[in-house]
């Protein structure tokens, strides 16, 4: 086969390689992130993951609006920073550990008298997590309903919408429960996710939530981007 006949093949091969390398490079963020969870955490580092303002129902049946930048920010003039985990009340293992961790965070916030950090545990199983079930979970872990609120999306669709936006995927574990990615999320008042921390990293999650707004009041000269960058310093994914 002479060179003239091989040339079109070589050109095509070059195009195929360029296309595949380009697509894969784009998907894996420059051949750095190989799993969905890595990509999601990378999105957070870039400040690209955000959730829309969401209506939830508290364990006591009262409505709760979260990630709504226009809402007044609790007891201080600073907007709320949310520390969010996803639970289902029948869960015997990890959600109970998370419950204990959230209780410790609640007590730390109580000692400090901070009203601008709110802990929210959101059910991923709104069909089975009825109000009484949520109340039992709240009572079991001594959630005060103020600093730490147990809540559920009002419907299955609303739940899917919220977890879908966040990239939290719950898979039935075959034993009637769920396995899901994404542990503790730190979310700013406007719905921008500023950190994802592993289950055993509640202390770094709390630290990040506390530092999001420099104490005691936001400095007027500090720009939004700077404050975020500052808060993100402590938000690296633990290895």
């Amino acid at each position: 086969m002479n060179e003239g006949r091989l040339l079109p093949t070589l050109v095509t091969c070059a195009i195929v390689v360029a296309l595949v390398v380009g697509l894969l490079g784009h998907l894996t963020r420059g051949f750095e992130r190989w799993t969905f969870e890595d990509l999601r955490r990378d999105q957070v580092r870039r400040g690209e993951l955000r959730v829309a303002s969401t209506s939830l129902v508290r364990a006591d049946g009262a409505p709760l609006k979260v990630f709504d930048a226009t809402a007044p920010g609790g007891s201080t003039s600073r907007p709320t920073v949310y520390v969010v985990d996803f639970i289902y009340t029948r869960c015997a293992s990890i959600c109970q550990t998370l419950g204990a961790e959230f209780y410790r965070m609640q007590e730390e916030l109580r000692r400090e008298g901070r009203g601008d950090v709110r802990l929210i545990s959101i059910s991923i199983d709104p069909l089975r997590d009825t109000m009484p079930a949520l109340q039992r979970y709240a009572a079991l872990h001594r959630a005060d309903g103020e600093r730490w609120t147990i809540a559920t999306p009002p419907s299955f669709d609303a739940s899917r919408q919220l977890t879908g936006r966040l990239g939290v995927i719950a898979v039935p574990d075959g034993l009637g429960g769920f396995v899901h990615n994404g542990a503790i999320h730190v979310i700013a008042s406007d719905g921008v996710v500023i950190g994802i921390h592993d289950y055993d990293q509640w202390e770094s999650a709390l630290r990040q939530a506390r530092c999001h707004w420099p104490s005691p009041l936001p400095l007027p000269q500090a720009g939004e981007g700077e404050r975020r960058a500052q808060a993100e310093d402590g938000a690296g994914r633990p290895q």
Binding site: R5, P8, T9, V11, T12, V16, V17
Partner: peptide, 11 residues
């Protein structure tokens, strides 16, 4: 013509 020896398809 653009797949001499099957190189393109193999790739």
């Amino acid at each position: 013509a653009i797949d001499a020896f099957g190189l393109t398809s193999v790739l």
